[in-house]
Amino acid sequence: NQASVVANQLIPISTALTLVMMRSEVVTPVGIPAEDIPRLVSMTVNRAVPLGTTLMPDMVKGYA
């Protein structure tokens, strides 16, 4: 089972991601792979991401 990136807090729309905002967790459905966390830092989300939500590729500008 692959770990995915999960929001560690509410991430408001257009917020630049930082390490403290994300954690890795094995979830269903599978989202962005946890090993991509370093790549996600400073990318922005294009929607509000509630606490505990799995980050999907279409939620992060420039990721997909």
Rank of each mutant, 00 (worst) to 15 (best):
A3F: 09
A3G: 12
S4H: 01
S4M: 03
V5A: 13
V5W: 02
V6H: 02
A7M: 04
A7C: 04
I11R: 00
I11H: 01
I11P: 01
P12T: 09
I13C: 15
S14V: 05
S14M: 14
T15Q: 10
T15E: 07
T15M: 07
T15P: 02
A16N: 08
L17Y: 00
L17V: 02
T18F: 03
T18R: 08
T18E: 14
T18H: 05
T18S: 10
L19R: 13
L19I: 08
L19C: 07
V20E: 13
V20F: 13
V20W: 12
M21T: 03
M21V: 03
M21L: 05
M22C: 03
R23W: 03
R23S: 07
S24N: 05
E25I: 05
E25A: 11
E25W: 05
V26M: 11
V26H: 12
V27P: 00
T28N: 15
T28Q: 10
T28P: 01
G31V: 02
P33L: 11
P33S: 12
A34Q: 06
A34T: 13
A34N: 07
E35D: 14
D36I: 06
D36N: 07
I37L: 12
I37D: 01
R39D: 05
R39T: 11
R39V: 12
L40V: 05
L40K: 00
L40M: 06
V41S: 02
V41E: 05
M43Q: 07
M43F: 15
T44N: 10
T44G: 04
V45I: 07
V45D: 01
N46I: 08
N46T: 13
R47H: 12
A48P: 14
V49D: 01
V49L: 09
G52I: 03
T53Q: 12
T54S: 04
L55G: 02
L55W: 02
L55E: 00
M56N: 05
M56V: 08
P57K: 10
P57Y: 06
D58V: 08
D58M: 11
D58L: 10
M59Q: 05
K61E: 14
G62L: 06
G62I: 04
Y63K: 03
A64V: 13
A64Q: 15
